[in-house]
C-alpha cells in the first residue's frame, strides 16, 4: 500500500492542478458553446413565438415537449427553435459529465485505481439519470 503522504507531495498536487486547469478550460468552452446555441435558438424562438402569450402557471407533464436526447437532436436539425434551445441545454448538462469522464482518465494516468473506481461510480449514477428508466 502506498503511504498516505503521497497525496500531498508537491509533484502530485501540481499534476492534479494541471489536469484540472485543462479540464476547466474545456468546460468553459463547452459553456460558451452551449450559451451560443441557446442564444441562437432563443432569438429564433422569439421571432416565432414572441407575440403569443406564455403560460407556465400550470404544470403539464403530458405536454408534448422535448424530453429525450434523441428527439431533441432530430428536431434541432429541422431548425425547431425550442429544440435548438434544448440542445444547448443538453450540452450544458453534458459539461459536468465530461468533467467526470476526464477525471477517470486523469486518475488512471496517475495509477490511482481507487479513485478510478470512485469516478466510475459517479459516472454510472450520471448515466443512470440521463439514460436509465424514467423515475
Amino acid at each position: 500500500m502506498k503511504s498516505p503522504a503521497r497525496s500531498w507531495s508537491p509533484k502530485n498536487v501540481w499534476t492534479d492542478q494541471r489536469v484540472e486547469t485543462i479540464i476547466g478550460n474545456l468546460l468553459r468552452t463547452g459553456v460558451l458553446l452551449s450559451g451560443a446555441i441557446v442564444l441562437f435558438g432563443g432569438i429564433l424562438y422569439l421571432l416565432q413565438y414572441g407575440h403569443l402569450s406564455a403560460h407556465y402557471s400550470g404544470f403539464n407533464a403530458n405536454r408534448a415537449e422535448l424530453h429525450a436526447v434523441g428527439p431533441v437532436i432530430r428536431q434541432a436539425f429541422h431548425l425547431d427553435s425550442r429544440a435548438i434551445i434544448q440542445l444547448g441545454l443538453l450540452l450544458l448538462i453534458a459539461t459536468p459529465v465530461v468533467r467526470v469522464a476526464f477525471s477517470i482518465v486523469a486518475f488512471a494516468l496517475e495509477r490511482d485505481w481507487l479513485y478510478v473506481w470512485v469516478a466510475l461510480i459517479v459516472f454510472a449514477i450520471l448515466m443512470f439519470s440521463l439514460f436509465g428508466p424514467a423515475l
Binding site: 404544470f59 403539464n60 407533464a61 415537449e65 424530453h67 429525450a68 439519470s129 424514467a134 423515475l135
Partner: peptide, 8 residues
C-alpha cells in the same frame, strides 16, 4: 437534470 429533463 437528467430526471428533470425527461419529466418535462
Amino acid at each position: 437534470a437528467g430526471i428533470y429533463l425527461r419529466r418535462g
